[in-house]
């Protein structure tokens, strides 16, 4: 039987009336082109594909509300907003709690997970899991800086997202990497 899971409402509220047909078409186009990309980007930052979809959706909702005519470079704008939303998300209390819950998975109950009966095939995934877990232990700002740098963002862009002086990005980045390595090695 088809299960229905029902959550809180979708959000294109109010804005609908103020939006012309043309804009709707342009938005559709942008959505088609960029939704996947933004979701992947957000998923990488957040380590959570579900949350990433929410974030990408929210970015589009904001674009919708702001109005396309107000924005010179919608793609760039969406990218920026997505990054900001990711950072907000990482900082939000609920997300931290959920991340922690997520890591309290059965595997964690066995202390010798590295030497347990993991086959080679599983080992690949195991590393991914450890990375996810180590990232989860970082402070939101450290995590954001670390992942954004890896994704190819400039210090300017990173600084703007995490509300930092550009001159501090190098210091924060180096420290974030050190912490990440320490957390990771603590898990192995």
């Amino acid at each position: 039987m088809a299960p229905i899971s029902i959550n809180t409402p979708a959000v294109f509220t109010g804005a609908v009336t103020t939006c012309s047909k043309n804009m709707e078409r342009d938005l559709q186009q942008l959505y088609k082109e960029l939704y996947g990309k933004l979701t992947r980007q957000a998923a990488f930052v957040l380590g959570d594909p579900m949350a990433a979809e929410d974030v990408a959706q929210e970015a589009f909702v904001r674009l919708y509300r702001t109005g396309l005519s107000q924005i010179d470079n919608p793609a760039g704008w969406l990218t920026k907003v997505t990054n900001n939303l990711c950072f907000d998300f990482l900082r939000s209390e609920g997300s931290r709690r959920r991340r922690e819950e997520k890591y309290a998975q059965p595997a964690d109950l066995s202390p010798n997970l590295a030497i347990s009966s993991t086959e080679n095939e599983v080992m690949g995934k195991e590393e991914v899991r450890l990375v996810q877990k180590a990232l989860g232990k970082l402070q939101p700002r450290d995590r954001m800086v670390l992942v954004m740098k890896f994704s190819g963002y400039s210090y300017d862009e990173i600084a703007a997202t995490v509300e930092l002086n550009k001159s501090s990005v190098g210091t924060v980045l180096a420290r974030a990497r050190e912490r990440f390595k320490r957390e990771y090695e603590g898990l192995v």
Partner: peptide, 8 residues
């Protein structure tokens, strides 16, 4: 949570 609101 607040993030659920947009899942069109």
């Amino acid at each position: 949570d607040i993030w659920m609101s947009n899942r069109i």
